[in-house]
Design a binder for these strands. Structure first.
Length: 428
RNA sequence: GGAGAGGUACCCGAGUGGCCAAAGGGAGCAGACUGUAAAUCUGCCGGCGAAGCCUUCGGAGGUUCGAAUCCUCCCCUCUCCA
């Protein structure tokens, strides 16, 4: 751990900071260990790539001696944050939230060390669910100006489609969270996405009004890729941190496919590689830049799924797409294998009985069955368009029989398009 | 509570009795070009199949030879009024 390095500078240099309530003072307060928090929504049973940014920020905090609190929004999840959303979020049931919160806990603990209270996981359901309405209105509600809330940017979108009272209360609840954490855990800093600015500031105000303490806020940029897509969260397919929802191999692939313009930015944000080494990447292009994508993917996968899984994904990709030359002096801090081993390559695999394969299976049915395509029609189209391959050979006819004559030592490697791969093995 | 507008495929959004599996755009997928990138161009983009059938236009009924389109009831969203 670097000595005497102020984490605020680190976060700034690495591109984490979009806004800060008072940069100078925050920097000063961070000279001494403090407690900070970020909230996570339990809207699904896994976090996705979009949450990686706040998680990394907390990890940086901890590495610099501060105590991060991760607040799972078990209580607020029942209300739904309207900030920046165009429509109302579906409300979750208590049970859903409970299971989801549990899953998030497990994931978060990969990035932050919870030993001996160095970090804490809290659930705001613990204090929000027992709030009493009248008391809350009297003690908390009176500190909020409706006029100001109406003027807030984050609600603008919703004035077009409509905003109900439940959502309108979200800000109060989040502010109350901050107050609660301030009083019970001496938490003085809240971080969050830039869309959270209004909610964070509301919390700071509330704390000041209730007890005169100073608190602070930092927001992260809302990341989009260079071409404008939301990080890791597309309507079609979110990239999840859970291995069950997005395999480590696919996760790795997501990062390898980073756009050129994003590589440096992502290295800074999503890895712990030294900034000095990353600076070199800025002047790279073509093959060298691709090598950096490999390292980026490796690093992020290692953080999320562990070193072993990252190596496996790396080798799997090397087998399919060819090995990349990774110069020893490129991002030298990364433990990425610079040379490739030849075992343990992990690509999604289906095991099939010997006799099933014996008789052969029409290609389009096989592709649909193993999930490379969503339906037989889709598989048919794919093959007719020339996007389907068996053992790196293009499949010519949609009903071509795939059978045991395709078997190699590695089974049968089927590929849809350039990047989706699946392996068939026989049992026994 | 009253008045009005509206709910169409992943999203936005045309369509107001047959030519509608439903225009257009976006997203997505494939091919070409490449660097497992972006941009661009081309094709695809409900399901099953072979060129015909099945299931879709908030839900349930009804009218009709025939409905996403007409009627009835219900559900939901929004706007204005109270």
């Amino acid at each position: 751990m670097p000595e005497r390095e102020n984490v605020f500078d680190v976060l700034t240099l690495r591109g984490f900071v979009a806004q800060a309530t008072d940069p100078e003072e925050i920097r000063q307060r961070l000279e001494k260990p403090l407690t900070c928090y970020i909230g996570f929504d339990p809207t699904a049973d896994s976090l996705h790539v979009g949450s990686l940014l706040p998680i990394m920020a907390l990890a940086h905090m901890q590495r610099h001696g501060h105590r991060p609190l991760m607040l799972v929004g078990g209580g607020t999840g029942m209300v739904g944050d309207p900030s920046g959303k165009t429509e109302m979020r579906k409300l979750l049931s208590l049970e859903e939230i409970a299971t989801n919160s549990q899953a998030l806990k497990t994931q978060l603990s990969r990035f932050v060390d919870f030993e001996g209270g160095r970090a804490l996981l809290l659930n705001n359901a613990d204090w929000l669910l027992e709030l009493r309405y009248i008391e809350f209105l009297r003690d908390i509600g009176r500190h909020f100006s409706v006029n100001r809330m109406l003027a807030a940017e984050s609600y603008k979108l919703r004035f077009e489609t409509g905003l109900n009272f439940v959502e309108f209360n979200y800000q109060l609840l989040q502010a109350y969270d901050f107050l609660y954490l301030s009083e019970h855990y001496d938490c003085i800093l809240q971080m969050g996405g830039n869309d959270q600015w209004g909610n964070i500031v509301a919390g700071i105000d509330l704390i000041r009004r209730k007890g005169g303490k100073s608190s602070y806020g930092i927001t992260f940029p809302l990341l989009t890729t260079a071409s404008g897509a939301k990080m890791g969260k597309t309507a079609a397919g979110a990239v999840w941190l859970s291995a069950a929802k997005t395999s480590p191999f696919d996760f790795y692939q997501y990062w390898v496919n980073t756009e050129d313009q994003d590589v440096v930015r992502f290295l800074r944000l999503y890895t712990f590689l030294p900034l000095a080494e990353i600076a070199v990447v800025e002047s790279l292009a073509g093959q060298d830049l691709n090598a950096c994508k490999t390292i980026l993917a490796f690093e992020v996968t290692a953080l999320t799924h562990g070193f072993e899984a990252a190596v496996a994904a790396f080798e799997g990709a090397s087998q399919i797409f060819g090995q990349r030359h990774l110069p020893a002096d490129l991002l030298p801090s990364s433990p990425v294998p610079r040379r490739i081993g030849d075992d343990g390559a992990v690509i999604p695999t289906t095991v099939m009985s010997c006799q099933r394969l014996e008789s052969g299976i029409p290609a389009f049915e096989l592709f649909a069955e193993i999930g490379l395509c969503n339906s037989k029609s889709a598989a048919r189209r794919l093959i007719q368009q020339g996007g389907a391959y068996a053992n790196q050979e293009r499949i010519q006819a949609f009903d071509e029989m795939i059978g045991s004559d395709f078997l190699t030592a590695d089974g049968i490697v089927l590929r849809a398009g350039k990047k989706k791969v699946h392996r068939i093995r026989i049992e026994g």
